[in-house]
């Protein structure tokens, strides 16, 4: 069971491009439809929990599915399975690339890629702003948190704690007013 779980998650980790969210359809295919390890509802519950807990989304999903199927040990097998392809592929690239980084053509390639990376990092800011329903009423929160992290060097962890606390207090205050 654990070995099967490990191999299944290794396949999911090794064959999906585009990070965690891109893995969800393949996970559902493997876990729910093919192996029948979980029902669709159980899978959706795990999806909700993984979004609400810290950590890397795909690994949260894997560890939670493993944990649900066979306890802590299976959770560890599933998480290691999903990250193993990443670690191996990146290590190979890192070791090879460290010999070629000074190469003229490699440097030219990355001079073209770097501005694209900055633009690619800006895209999720706007697409997530849409799905998080940012409006004129709450747009000060992302602006202020960005300013504090970028200009004042405040740690993102502190911003995250304050934001959770602020949301909690605001919810309480709204409830009282009603």
């Amino acid at each position: 069971m654990n070995i099967e779980l490990f191999i299944t998650f290794m396949k999911i980790g090794g064959f999906t491009l585009g990070g965690g969210p891109a893995m969800v359809p393949m996970m559902e295919q493997e876990i729910v439809n093919k192996h029948h390890w979980l029902s669709k509802e159980e899978f959706l519950d795990i999806y909700a929990v993984s979004q609400a807990t810290p950590g890397i989304f795909a690994v949260d999903m894997a560890s939670h599915i493993g944990y649900k199927l066979g306890g802590i040990r299976s959770g560890i097998y599933a998480s290691l399975g999903v990250v193993l392809p990443s670690i191996v592929i990146i290590l190979l690239i890192a070791i090879i690339f460290s010999h070629f980084r000074e190469n003229h053509w490699v440097e030219a390639f990355f001079m073209g890629v770097r501005p694209a990376v900055v633009a690619l990092l800006a895209v999720p800011v706007f697409s997530m702003a849409k799905s998080a329903k940012i409006s004129w009423h709450n747009c000060w929160i992302p602006i202020l948190s960005c300013f504090l992290i970028w200009i004042c060097g405040v740690s993102p962890a502190i911003i995250i704690l304050i934001a959770c606390l602020g949301g909690y207090l605001y919810g309480k205050y709204k409830l009282k007013k009603q």
Partner: peptide, 26 residues
Amino acid sequence: TVLKSIFGGLRPAIIGLLATASLSLL
């Protein structure tokens, strides 16, 4: 409602965090 209001504060702040990466690398 508690969990929902916590995420109501958290999500907008994370968007600010996302923006810092591209701004710092500019």
